[in-house]
Amino acid sequence: MTFESFSFYLFSTILVGSALSVIFSRNPVHAALSLVLAFFTAAAIWLMLEAEFLAISLILVYVGAVMVLFLFVVMMLDININRMREGYWNYLLPAIVVSGIFLAELIVLISGRMVFEKPLEISAQITNEGNTLQLGRLLYTEYLYAFELAAVILLVAIVAAIALTLRRRKDMKVVSSSDQSSANRASRLKIVSMPVENGREREES
């Protein structure tokens, strides 16, 4: 057994094991942590396939950002595990149907190549230069327009998220300290000249 196949089997075993533990663990925090492990090992397998860009972005984006956020939410929420597990077996039939379809698809894809007849081949250029360079070159030259548009879409998402969620509460009691220290007499005190009240008028009204 070469080192390559040894590490492949090692990572695959960890991947399958951690994926199973995502499903079977009773504690949602444990499940989320197992998912992080699964992502890590999947990234390692990608790295072995010389797809280093995918591996790095999987770790940076999913492990670094998405899963941390996920864990945060899971820890903040007060989840009643017993209630969540009620009716667990009711989903058995739909689960069997869906997984049966997945299985059939996998068999078709792997066995026959019936859908796509052209075999996928990796060009020599990619293996020589590394796919990060290749992807970067394509993104910043040929697909520059699409890249910029995607950036604009992200900008819209930021603007929209802030516009929809930023609320200034009207009943807030916070006072700005610069306003406080720059206050002078005129802004605090207003002298109003009132006519002297006549005692007889009050009696009449």
Binding site: A146, L149, I153, V156, A157, A160, A163, L164
Partner: peptide, 15 residues
Amino acid sequence: SLYLGLELLSLSLYA
């Protein structure tokens, strides 16, 4: 570019 334009339009409209 068709799809990106469509998403840019739709996201702005949703908001």
